[in-house]
Write a protein that binds this DNA or RNA. Structure first.
Lengths: 105, 105
DNA sequence: TTGACATATTGACGTGTGTCGATATATAGT
DNA sequence: ACTATATATCGACACACGTCAATATGTCAA
């Protein structure tokens, strides 16, 4: 997992990956679940590949259970990266009332 | 200019483009200014190309002056896109105290 | 109108990346 | 041990994209 904003942006900069992220938002899903929810758009190796990318960017958490792996979105990290983006590239707005980054757990 | 989050993420997902964005943050710069500030990392056509990408994503504003064009970051749009990202992929944090999107002018 | 300057566009090239089929690895059940 | 299931990895391919040199477009000055 790497902390920089380019890695974050690259991870989010793909449609399939965003769809996967939507699947994993507020829910734990196995790889197979994600493949199903994507309804045949891509198949299992592709999903695994994207999950790896998301994991390396720190955007998902993993939990092993039997022979399956469950993934979920790391919402605090996403919030943090977005906050850093605003801080970097929209400082005139960052000052006001965005979430203070040190309050994101 | 297109409104979706993939376009936004793609625009930000490049190191050179982020450096250009840093140049344009809170300042109006001509293309030549940006080329200079990047200190020979890339040359003028590349900068123009990236500025076009940023413009199509709605991340910069342009102002013509004589034979030069001045660009600056569109901070409200960046704030808005980041807010949408949090809303989409970190709803558990979006509820709290992030900038209400309709207050971003 | 001609020449100089600022920026945009074009065409080409190499690299990065999303996708897949095939295969490997790991775990559970019999 | 053997089989079935779940996921990861590998190798290959096509396409997207960042970069550059060369050129085009546009604007000002003389």
């Amino acid at each position: 997992m790497d902390a920089n904003l380019i890695t974050f942006a690259k991870a989010v900069a793909d449609e399939t990956r965003q769809q996967i992220m939507t699947c994993l938002c507020c829910e734990w899903c196995s790889v197979g679940d994600v493949v199903d929810q994507l309804g045949g758009k891509v198949n299992q190796p592709t999903v695994s590949h994207h999950l790896k990318t998301l994991q390396e960017a720190g955007l998902v958490e993993v939990r092993q259970e039997g022979r399956q792996r469950f993934y979920t979105l790391n919402q605090s990290r996403i919030t943090m990266c977005c906050g850093m983006l605003v801080q970097q590239f929209a400082p005139e707005y960052a000052a006001s009332n965005i979430i203070p980054l040190d309050q994101v757990t």
